[in-house]
């Protein structure tokens, strides 16, 4: 079992609904984000374009944040979700240094590390993550990448996909479709 996301930047409209739904689900303090949308512009007028990139934890197969965490506050679940337990976190920020994707922040309310945890509390109850539910264009796909029959596996296997910073060899499980190279 390997939960992952596929984010279709071909249909993403950069609306930030995912950002805000995530914030309301987790009551993320102002100024901090578990997921956010990056805007990148390129080209000269009139050949200008704008691309969006929806950023978040990659739930890496080989997660450096888990390795560095001194207290196992960050941990990888059997279903592939890289989850965290704020009650164990000492706030050393090692994970923030280990993550090559800037996915982690120290929550200003709890003073502990936090990041996208795949809405594990919802997934455990059979519910999609909040960002997936809200997305107007259904650009965020969720599911088991190991199950070749799943929608997400088919999407990822049958289309050209990218992952962020593959050279880091962390085995990201967020796959992007049609993301601009600059995003």
């Amino acid at each position: 079992m390997r939960y992952g996301f596929a984010i279709d930047q071909r249909t993403c409209i950069g609306c930030h609904a995912c950002t805000v739904a995530c914030k309301t689900e987790h009551e993320v303090p102002v100024g901090q984000f578990r997921t956010w949308v990056k805007y990148v512009e390129s080209g000269d007028f009139p050949a200008t374009t704008r691309d969006f990139g929806v950023m978040r934890c990659n739930h890496c197969t080989d997660a450096p944040c888990v390795r560095i965490c001194p207290t196992k506050a960050l941990f990888k679940r059997d279903d592939g979700i890289v989850d965290f337990d704020r009650a164990r976190c000492i706030g050393c920020k090692g994970c923030m240094q280990a993550c090559p994707y800037d996915a982690i922040y120290i929550d200003e309310d709890t003073h502990t590390a936090a990041k996208c945890n795949f809405c594990a509390h919802r997934v455990d109850e059979g519910l999609e993550p909040a960002c997936v539910v809200v997305c107007p264009t259904h650009s965020i796909w969720v599911g088991d990448l190991d199950d070749s029959g799943s929608g997400i596996a088919r999407l990822v296997n049958e289309n050209p996909v990218q992952v962020r910073a593959p050279e880091q060899n962390t085995g990201p499980n967020v796959f992007y479709l049609g993301a601009d190279r600059a995003v």
Binding site: I68, C69, T71, R88, I90, G91, I106, T112
Partner: peptide, 26 residues
Amino acid sequence: WDLKQPKRFLYLLLKPNPTSWLVWGA
């Protein structure tokens, strides 16, 4: 002092993660 949860510093030894150099550093 640099810990955001300094009171929990003993977790380094009480709930250690053996792959972490933060633990071995301690």
